[in-house]
Amino acid sequence: MTAEVNQDELASFRAALAALPRAELTTWLTTADGEALLRTVFEQMPERYTGGLLGGPQTARWVVERPPAGTIVYDLVLTEDDCDVRDTGLWGAPTVTLTLDAVSFVEMASATAQGMDLLFQGRLHIDGDVRLAMRLETLFGLGEPG
């Protein structure tokens, strides 16, 4: 697997994921290539943003854990039309924080798994505004199961 995953090709990405055992993917995501993929996924999230969030800007903080390597944290600042990917802390306190392991993040970002399933499997933890948390997949066009 390489870091050059085209996020528009969710189906092929899902197929690549399905072929890889979870333990292997966990290990790979702790490597430099794995980190590059995770950062690519974040950088491409604005392309998937469907918009429609009413009210002022709201920040969804993603905390992606991949021990023993370092945790990756990004803030997605969401408005009605735009999604800005920022380093954490530049836009005040987050509206909602989602904490999950790197494999679960990749699964969620590729619509291989749904956030609610990950949450109910104890793989995703949510703090803050539950309503925004529940809408996030829809806002990024990931509402349908993979």
């Binding site: 909602v96 104890g122 703090d127 505004d129 539950v130 948390a133």
Partner: peptide, 10 residues
């Protein structure tokens, strides 16, 4: 109504 309530259900 809250993330805590959802986490408790989970």
């Amino acid at each position: 109504g809250s993330a805590a309530a959802l986490m408790e259900r989970a």
